[in-house]
Computed example of a mutant assay.
Amino acid sequence: MSPKPPPHPRQNHLLAALSPEVQDRLFPYLELVALPLRALMYESGRPMRHVYFPTDAIVSLQYVMENGASTAILVVGNEGLLGITLFMGGESSPSRSVVQSAGHAYRLPRSRVKEEFKRHGELLLLMLRYTQALITQVAQTAVCNRHHAIDQQLCRWLLLSLDRLSNNHLTMTQEFIANMLGVRREGVTQAALKLQQLGVISYSRGLIKVLDRPQLEALSCECYGVVKKETDVLLHYMPQRQVIKDASAIPTVTLPTGNAVLAA
């Protein structure tokens, strides 16, 4: 059996949206890196050396409290990039970035990013629109965490995560999901069981299969719809999401054990 070919930079939709001229300037400096589950990409307050463009991974930005508690404020996948602080005037981030679903990303050195920004061209334009989409996601996450039930938050989180992958698989622990939502692990288990009883997902031995995405969207709070609508308007380069109609394309979320760390 032949090995699986490495992901192409164009599997990241933002990179794919760039003109051939800009791609020719940037692609030679892209470096493919593996992103293991729970790897630390950026640590709060530390200098950022690269911008990352995920192809088949999801990275979560978390805010960590003094007592060690954390909550995810946004997720980044193949729709954009990790490291917007570099073109917003900062050299470090106040949040921590952790790989939520293992995969790959292409990283670009800080110097090359800034050099392209100084051209005031299409990369900067795309990143400004992407930043606006992220602001909407952060704001809606804050509202959701304050006003909506855990099962609604889980639905929103599953949908946002699946929208940001080129495939239908997520890999993480139940404890990690609880950390993402800023809730107790027992709350995640109860929410997953509730969704299973409603026939939205199947849940067995740490494996979640989404059986009915339309119902999952209906059970989610309005926060998912707000973020999706804003993302679709601002990120015009994103492919349209299709409703799953056959069982072979059912999204799957795997919840194994394990932990891995990647140097920032």
Rank of each mutant, 00 (worst) to 15 (best):
residue 161 S to T: 12
residue 120 H to S: 09
residue 181 L to D: 07
residue 180 M to N: 13
residue 205 R to S: 15
residue 158 L to D: 02
residue 202 S to D: 12
residue 154 L to P: 06
residue 165 L to D: 02
residue 100 Q to E: 07
residue 156 R to L: 04
residue 184 R to E: 03
residue 117 F to C: 14
residue 197 Q to R: 15
residue 102 A to Y: 00
residue 135 I to H: 00
residue 142 A to S: 04
residue 98 V to M: 09
residue 131 T to K: 05
residue 198 L to I: 06
residue 161 S to N: 12
residue 193 L to C: 04
residue 121 G to F: 02
residue 104 H to E: 05
residue 104 H to C: 09
residue 165 L to A: 07
residue 128 L to D: 00
residue 133 A to P: 02
residue 106 Y to C: 08
residue 118 K to Y: 05
residue 158 L to T: 04
residue 142 A to N: 08
residue 130 Y to T: 00
residue 137 Q to D: 09
residue 125 L to K: 02
residue 141 T to N: 11
residue 190 Q to K: 15
residue 208 I to L: 15
residue 115 E to R: 06
residue 95 S to F: 12
residue 141 T to C: 03
residue 111 S to M: 12
residue 137 Q to G: 01
residue 163 D to Q: 12
residue 204 S to Q: 13
residue 108 L to D: 03
residue 179 N to I: 01
residue 195 L to P: 06
residue 163 D to G: 06
residue 172 M to K: 10
residue 197 Q to D: 07
residue 151 D to I: 09
residue 108 L to K: 07
residue 108 L to W: 06
residue 170 L to G: 11
residue 133 A to H: 03
residue 206 G to Q: 10
residue 175 E to N: 13
residue 109 P to L: 11
residue 205 R to V: 04
residue 189 T to E: 06
residue 143 V to G: 00
residue 149 A to K: 13
residue 197 Q to A: 13
residue 195 L to S: 09
residue 118 K to D: 11
